[in-house]
Nucleic acid binder design. Structure first.
Lengths: 205, 205
DNA sequence: ACAAAAGTGTTCCTGTTACACCCATGT
DNA sequence: ACATGGGTGTAACAGGAACACTTTTGT
């Protein structure tokens, strides 16, 4: 491909995050590092446009998506770029295109500046919302262990947490439902599975 | 005027708030209630566009301005509307155009829907940021009394606060500098004037 | 048997709340 | 003199932080 995109005045860009072992975001491979981004089409909503960016870049759909910020575009590009961030559990993602891969946000400096800014601000927003919005759950399956949940908090918040305090706090903040199942995996005691009761998506603006 | 605006694909809309006795926002008078909004011009940044909206509507400049959210436009209007909120102390505002006035946000329902949403979400954002961002100070002059500051918190937070607790909390959260001046006004003890030391504007996104 | 993560309570400390009186001034 | 908002401290309470051991499993 070349650098001249078929660009309208408005584009949506999406930083898609997932957690494998660390936090990672979806990056288009190529000379200039970029994240998925497409121009807004006629009759399309901004959110639909953002979802299409993920679909066209990687064949990914059905992710949690939230608007981040709107930036002035660079010369030769769209006039404005509406940035979104997306979250999904890693195992629910199936990348169906080549030329995309996962990258550690601490290496966002290899992206074009505009997209680097988006990734960095998305990370800050994520850490900020962790405590008052149910975003951590977006990285997990419907049923999850408290250990998995704690890992998400630790990875996004960039600090280790005390297990007992974490459990008390999380049970006070969110309406977790203890299922009767457990997950057996590895040479240790099985972990009870939980669900988040009222997993209403946050509003925010 | 009529309903067909000379509209490009992108517009900025601004909800300007001030505090007189209550919280108020700047409204364009007319059949359909609106807030200032103009299409983005060639070579103009979004923020400049938002400032121009205030300037063209009311001759207002030099306000604190922060992006709120980007909305899909309505049919017949711009394709996207980038919403901002602005804050300023009332006495620093000089309205230099006719056809604009102040309105209580609780009466935002008289606005066109898109602008009503902007005003409502701006109010929520304001209340939410009150505790961790120095937005209250944007409603005050450089030097202010703690009583004035408390009024701002009470008005935006929609609750009365205990004077002693407020003072302790505010002095713990912000770096306030006690000046040697006081303000004499009314049949009571003069109030000491304070400045906010490091009044760095919040980043946010 | 042992290695590995799951699970569980108590104490301490810090920050938040509730609360009442004197001060300096203008009229 | 009195009415008005400015200014101050303390005790009770709640939420957060620090901290160690037992349980259940796979190998």
């Amino acid at each position: 491909m070349n650098d001249t995109k078929p660009s309208g005045p408005i584009a949506a860009a999406v930083a898609l995050f997932t957690i494998r072992e660390r936090l990672e975001f979806l990056r288009l491979e190529g000379e200039h590092g970029r994240i998925p981004s497409v121009p807004l089409e006629e009759g399309e909503t901004l959110e639909a446009c953002a979802r299409r960016a993920l679909w066209e870049a990687a064949g990914i759909e059905d992710v949690f998506l939230e608007q981040l910020y709107t930036f002035d575009g660079r010369l030769g590009g769209p006039r404005v770029v509406v940035a979104y961030y997306a979250l999904a559990p890693h195992d629910r993602l199936r990348i169906r295109r080549s030329g995309v891969g996962w990258m550690d946000p601490t290496r966002a400096s290899t992206l074009v500046e505009e997209h680097r800014t988006i990734v960095e601000r998305a990370c800050e927003r994520l850490a900020g919302k962790l405590e008052y919005a149910p975003i951590a759950y977006q990285f997990l399956a419907d049923r999850f262990t408290l250990g998995e949940l704690q890992s998400v908090y630790e990875i996004i918040g960039r600090q280790t947490l005390d297990k007992r305090n974490f459990r008390r706090r999380i049970r006070a903040s969110w309406d977790l439902v203890e299922t009767h199942d457990a997950r057996r995996e590895g040479p240790h005691r099985p972990a009870r599975l939980y669900r988040l009761r009222d997993a209403r998506p946050p509003l925010e603006g």
